[in-house]
Design a protein around this nucleic acid. Structure first.
Lengths: 348, 348
DNA sequence: AGTTAGCACTCCCGAAACGAGAGTGCTATT
DNA sequence: AATAGCACTCTCGTTTCGGGAGTGCTAACT
């Protein structure tokens, strides 16, 4: 497959780079004079002919410049994947921002989304880390109004969920506290499976709450509102989305979230922490993304808590900028998650 | 000001209605044959001339049809404001949706945003109710990891806030619980002012937490993430936003939220529960909204807990649809908030 | 006096025509 | 094998132009 001569290779990479910047079909002349090459336009034309033959380039019409095909982008990306580094200065800035933010997951998520969007000029998506084999830590039951009770469930790792329950009859705060305290000693440190296999409690309130806690554990995977996003308006800047219908379809993905979820779920499974995945043109699977690319990474601690994050942009996006940014931010988040988890373990 | 003849009035209203539907300048001929009027195009032309003179209409250029001015829209809106009613069926559907959703504020907010957006085909904004003169109910302190503590603050009325604190040194869960319990008896039912005027506590931890609680009370107004929104992509459907730059500016308002906040804050102050406000063309104040209109309402229980909600659309939006929808949803939410609050008072 | 028909005039808008420019592939030459 | 030259193709922005819609005015009509 990699049967390109050195010259073809540099030519291909240069052309794509140029197209990414200019958003316009690149011709032999432009290429020759923009980057002073030591061979002539005619030679370039020949080579471009070959590259077109091989499926890396395409001409919108006879006698226009060349434009990369999806295949071309793939080559480009695989070529730069391991080379691209984020400038030291930018790295420091980003790291700094994270470390001086308040140490809350929500802060980290919005910050990550914001940084990804502004650095890449694309739309960012950050999915909060999902704790695998979540362990119970603590529950609080607070009577709020009549039969309604606020349940705050704290997981090991700092994950917190709250939920309002409506009981069949009013219960005093005192009884609630007793139930909470009993459950706290009973369940401390247990996983879903362990909790599920416990014998039924005699106290009916205890049992009810236990069931609810269990449900909450299981719901963990389908939490849809934990997706953070930023930079939506960036797509409107790109010329390929100036036709508003195209833009609408793309933005809709982020409003509905179901496609997005599907997408992230599928890619999540193939990819490891530290490894990036680049989807180009929807990879034939997602009609809505035919014009787009996504750079996706997982972050977190495998087996403990992992999440996904990424950037969506036009197929013509600046991979040279986006790839290292996504990688770096994923790294920082991984560290933060890791710290959070190991702290937890140290102290308990 | 209201010196329009009956005929001018019907003509003006018809023209605006037609323009809202067609998005194109309306001429005398179109008006005459579309709605079978018993006077001729020439008469219509005369009247339109007069209406233009008076500032209600405008022609994009000589010899095009007429288009409403902001003044025209204002007249139109004030005219229909009290007439427009939501069809019974739609009312029932909406009400039904609310009552079968889970009784959580978050659910209500997203549901309201979704309904507003889909009914009005505009962008919806819903700001969670802000409890005025919030009263303390309960605090929980839960050690999560080392020096980090999760503080859950529950207000009367069911408002819940959580925050992660980092203490200067680790504290046992037991001591935290004692502090919480002391504060709970001390502060029960108090308002900000009452809490602020308490003498300093002797226990330093108690005092620290007290200060934090107070801060949290005060922050109440500036919570930015309690804004729910939906239907962003709807603006891209409108012809006036087909130029992507216009669309971008408008959508940016919803991403940044600061303008939005400003806007809602200003209008909030002039308006009463039950009364709608319609901002047309940004009312000279907001450059970004020059092309837009907003229909805004407050909801909730005055003096207790109130919020804001509204719809943004092109100036050409379907007021006949949007106004009653906003009013109705505001009403339903008011009822829900009211129920929540009075429940609270009954039982305690 | 208010309403209407007729008419000349203005201006937008889409279609067609056109020329410049950019790019290509091929061939002959170095 | 690389390059210069050349004829050819196709797009795109501009210009031209006529149709159409709509207006305002005037004169006639009720």
């Amino acid at each position: 497959m990699n049967n390109l001569t050195e010259r073809q290779k540099t030519l291909l990479l240069l052309l794509i780079k140029d197209y990414i910047e200019s958003a316009q079909p690149v011709g032999s002349k432009r290429l020759a004079e923009h980057y002073h090459l030591n061979f002539s336009t005619a030679t370039i034309r020949n080579e471009m002919g070959a590259l077109t033959e091989m499926g890396y380039l395409r001409q919108p019409h006879t006698s226009a410049g060349r434009v990369p095909t999806e295949e071309g982008y793939r080559y480009f990306v695989s070529e730069m994947m391991n080379k691209a580094e984020l400038p030291e200065g930018v790295q420091r800035t980003i790291s700094h921002q994270f470390h001086q933010s308040r140490p809350e997951l929500e802060q980290w998520m919005t910050l990550a989304a914001s940084i990804l969007a502004s650095q890449s000029q694309g739309v960012s998506v950050v999915v909060a880390p999902h704790v695998e084999q979540a362990k119970y830590k603590h529950v609080e039951l607070i009577s709020t109004q009549g039969r309604q009770v606020l349940m705050v469930l704290v997981m090991m790792g700092g994950d917190v969920r709250q939920q309002i329950l409506t009981l069949t009859e009013p219960v005093t705060q005192e009884r609630l506290s007793q139930t909470a305290s009993r459950l706290n000693t009973l369940l401390a440190g247990l996983t879903v499976d362990a909790i599920a296999s416990l014998p039924t409690r005699t106290d009916p309130l205890d049992q009810d709450i236990l069931t609810l806690i269990l449900q909450d554990f299981k719901n963990t995977a389908s939490r849809t509102n934990e997706i953070y996003t930023d930079g939506l308006t960036n797509v409107l800047r790109e010329p390929e989305f100036s036709g508003s219908e195209e833009a609408r379809k793309t933005l809709k993905i982020f409003e509905e979230r179901s496609t997005l979820q599907d997408l992230l779920a599928k890619t999540t499974t193939n990819s490891n922490i530290g490894g990036l995945q680049v989807l180009i043109g929807g990879e034939g699977e997602w009609e809505e993304l035919r014009q787009c690319s996504m750079v996706i990474a997982r972050y977190g601690v495998p087996g403990m808590a992992t999440g996904t994050l990424g950037v969506l942009g036009p197929m013509r996006m600046s991979y040279a900028r986006t790839i290292p940014t996504v990688r770096y931010v994923a790294g920082v988040l991984s560290d933060l998650v890791n710290d959070t988890i190991s702290n937890e373990n140290d102290i308990r």
